[in-house]
Amino acid sequence: MLKNVHFGPSVLPFLLVLPQIVVTLVFFIWPASQALYQSVLIEDPFGLKTEFVWFKNFEELFQDPLYWSSFEITVVFSFLVAFLSMSFALLLALFADRVIKGTGVYRTLLIWPYAVAPVTAGALWVFMFNPTLGVVSYALSALGYDWNHQLSGSEAMALVVMASAWKQVAYNFLFFLAGLQSIPRSLIEAAAIDGAGPGRRTIDIILPLLSPTTFFLLVINIVYAFFETFGVIHAVTAGGPAGATNTLVYKVFNDGFVGLDLGGSAAQSVILMIIVIGLTVAQFKYIEKKVAY
């Protein structure tokens, strides 16, 4: 990774990396180590006395049924968001790859929700599904279904999933379309000569060749659902009703800033860090695989 031709040692390279390293140390490494440190401490509510307690915060966390339910909610939420946005995007990408005219126009019309902030996306969906006023809940009640996400946990979950997936379709669509367009035409032509129709070709050739893209997007979507949907949840349900949409990230925020349980919040942060590390490793494994592929 170093150039064959390069500059010799001097102070200059240190000065060049300095800004990045200072920001990294002060705002990343130091806070993260603080989180590690605080996760083994218990502080009294006034911040006067701290006590070193080894892994007691973690033990309490693992014994807390609320934490496990938050875990479960996060897994269900991430799976639904990834599945919904990826399958919708894949379907559209398959069709967009098929039509010769207008692919660019469809792409333009499909990608812009990417630019919408999670909170704004949440606001739009809350408005559409507002139990008393919303356009969609009105249509639903005309069909005989009484929508109220402020009372029903599963409806609240459905709403945050839809809002989060809606925002992510654009990203998945772009990557699926790029993946489809990079499949060698000769393979598809060979299959067509052998008598495979469009459906058969999609299942036997296109989808298997698309699997690296799919795996990559799966990781990205899980990361998105875990960490970047805070705004959606904050705007739509604030973790409610009765904790039905209280994901892990939302819980760290809630326990730390609202509940002021520093040790518990730090222990949750540490667990989240471990999850991010796992996901990052998975993502990089994929990149290595793609080089060979």
Partner: peptide
């Protein structure tokens, strides 16, 4: 620098706020 990939704001909210 690579490690910062693994430390999104969401997992270090409180200590970063303190800093």
């Amino acid at each position: 620098i690579f490690i910062t990939l693994m430390l999104p704001v969401e997992v270090r909210i409180l200590p970063t706020y303190e800093v």
